[in-house]
Simulated scan of single mutants.
Amino acid sequence: MRTSYILAMIPLSVLDLSPVPEGSDVSQSLANTLDLARHAERLGYNRYWLAEHHNMPGIASAATAVVIGHVAAGTSTIRVGAGGIMLPNHSPYVIAEQFGTLATLFPDRIDLGLGRAPGTDQYTLRALRRDPASAENFPRDVLELQAYLAPATPGQPIEAVPGSGTEVPLWILGSSLFGAQLAAELGLPFGFASHFAPGSLDQALAIYRDRFRPSAQQQRPHALVGVNIIAAESDAEAQYLATSQQMSFTHMVRGTRRLTQPPIADIETYWSPREKMHVQQMLACSIIGGPETVRRGVDALLERTHADELMIVSDMFDFGKRLRSFEIIAGLMR
């Protein structure tokens, strides 16, 4: 048992969906994303990742590679990447070109996390002109993408330009045992999406570590764990701010799409008992409170998972409060 995970300087990173609050718009959300990335860089965060979601009015990061370029151009040292690109939505060749271009523009700063889910509904999947069965080809597509990013060989008939030779670091992302098994087999770092689907967290990490095979990219397993952290000056304030995220997940359960809502005094008046049960299951990997509560929660999570890195989601309505939340969390690194 490690005596102090915090003193061991576990890297902390940021996952941003570019949320769109009620009364705001996409333009402001993308500006906020760059402001938050610069804030995270000053505070010493390790990575800043953006996620691909489609047909969601409350999320502005659908064109993920474009937003990554926006963030990377506006920062200087923090690693920027996808958490993740939903590979079944795309040709591996096109993703190799996109991220090869990013890696050429911003050397040694780009990460490419890959997910197997479509990140949207069936109607939008058809609008993307993708076959739902393409998810079954995910392992093969990962290998194809990896080959396009590797140095070109003599006589290679298809080359990603830019792309070949950039060897952009690949990550396998998932919320099930499948992703853990694939990451272990391919010898890639693994990110578990426990910030919205924590049910298989412990089993997935055990499988990943037990079955990991070293590769040219990764000699040892590297497990990144997603966690919701809403930090504020007091436990009461954090619980209040967290109701915006709880309402967003309630909308997911209801199958409705809304912008991020202002916090409310009593979340119990908003959801039904069934909705509350579902939302609490999805948000079980959450730490909400003042600085000491957050510190204890992070220590307990790291004691449980032995994570090599934490990827933090801190979504709330007020952008100033969101900046402050990441400041409080960053204090755990010191």
Rank of each mutant, 00 (worst) to 15 (best):
S4D: 15
L7R: 15
A8W: 03
P11T: 14
L15W: 01
L17P: 08
S18T: 09
S27V: 14
Q28Y: 03
S29K: 09
L30M: 10
L36H: 09
H39L: 09
A40F: 00
A40G: 10
W49V: 05
L50D: 02
H53D: 01
H54S: 08
G58L: 00
S61R: 04
A62E: 12
V66M: 13
I68H: 03
I68W: 05
G69C: 10
G69Y: 11
A73V: 12
T75W: 03
T77E: 13
R79P: 07
M86I: 04
P88S: 06
H90G: 07
S91N: 11
E97I: 03
Q98S: 15
F99W: 10
G100I: 09
T104L: 14
T104K: 10
R109E: 13
I110C: 10
L112G: 06
L114A: 08
G115K: 07
T120Y: 07
Q122D: 14
A127T: 10
R129M: 11
D131T: 02
P132A: 07
A133G: 08
A135P: 13
E136V: 14
N137K: 12
N137S: 10
P139W: 06
D141G: 01
V142Y: 01
L145K: 04
Q146L: 01
A147W: 02
Y148N: 02
A150L: 01
T153E: 08
P157N: 14
G163Y: 05
T166M: 09
L170Y: 07
W171S: 10
G179H: 00
G179L: 05
Q181K: 15
L182N: 05
E185R: 15
L186D: 06
G191N: 10
A193Y: 07
A193H: 06
S194Y: 03
F196T: 11
P198R: 12
G199P: 03
L201H: 07
L201W: 05
L205K: 11
L205A: 08
I207A: 12
R211M: 01
S215C: 01
S215W: 00
A216L: 07
R220L: 00
V227D: 03
I230S: 03
A232K: 02
E233G: 11
S234A: 00
E237W: 00
E237Q: 15
A238R: 03
T243S: 13
T243I: 06
Q245T: 15
Q245V: 07
Q246R: 14
T250R: 09
M252A: 14
R254E: 09
T256D: 15
T256G: 03
R257W: 05
R257Y: 04
R258P: 06
L259G: 07
L259D: 05
P262S: 12
P263I: 01
I267H: 04
E268P: 00
P273N: 02
P273L: 02
H278W: 00
H278P: 01
V279W: 01
M282S: 13
M282H: 06
A284F: 01
I288Y: 02
P291G: 08
E292R: 14
T293M: 04
D299F: 02
D299Y: 02
A300I: 14
A300N: 14
L301R: 13
L301T: 13
A307C: 10
A307T: 08
D308M: 04
D308C: 09
E309D: 05
M311C: 10
D315I: 12
D318I: 04
F319V: 14
G320Y: 00
R322F: 00
L323W: 03
E327S: 15
I329Y: 05
I329E: 08
G331Y: 09
G331F: 04
